[in-house]
């Protein structure tokens, strides 16, 4: 996904970026909890509206979409490594609905949670430090997670068609 920050760069003062980072780091730490916009904006120390606008301008997606993607990334990690059922993975990463989890996972990752788990079970875990996968964060099959599977169309479908920027 190409993020055109240039269009919006002036909107986010560099001094504000660490505050946005604190909120984003909180998502990374507490993704499994019930995080809402009010709490995240409070972490950044700015109003909800301004927080969403600046977060999206800086990171190319809204805070709640980033939260969803973090949960799905954590789900991928568990599906690769942990001996848990799909439902357990769903609940562990913070989703309350299995249907919603499976739909969002499939839309973003390009295959269902069970297919993803089974494919990795056949290969074993990746020989890549998990922290680097964590910070990479993305869920596209072209990058972080593709043993024996070529990149193909539909691997990195934005959750919202067309993405939130560049419209």
């Amino acid at each position: 996904m190409v993020l055109d920050e240039r269009r919006t760069r002036r909107a986010v003062p560099v001094e504000l970026l660490p505050h946005l980072r604190h909120a984003r780091d909180r998502i990374d730490r507490e993704y499994h909890a019930d995080l809402d916009l009010a709490a995240l904006a409070a972490t950044a120390g700015i109003s909800k509206f301004y927080f969403v606008r600046c977060f999206e301008a800086a990171y190319g997606e809204t805070p709640m979409r980033y939260l969803t993607r973090r949960r799905l990334e954590r789900a991928q990690d568990l599906l690769r490594l942990a001996n848990l059922t799909i439902t357990e993975v769903c609940m562990t990463v913070g989703f309350s609905s299995l249907g919603s989890f499976s739909a969002k996972f499939t839309r973003l990752v390009g295959e269902s949670p069970s297919a993803y788990r089974d494919r990795w079970a056949a290969h074993g875990g990746p020989r890549v430090p998990g922290c680097f996968l964590f910070m990479r964060g993305a869920l596209d099959l072209r990058g972080t997670a593709s043993p024996g599977r070529a990149a193909g169309p539909g691997c990195a479908i934005p959750e919202k068609p067309g993405g939130e920027l560049g419209q």
């Binding site: 560099v14 946005l20 980072r21 984003r24 780091d25 910070m135």
Partner: peptide
């Protein structure tokens, strides 16, 4: 500086 601020650099 902006990438540092955003937290992207390892």
């Amino acid at each position: 500086r902006r990438e540092l601020g955003k937290g992207h650099l390892g």
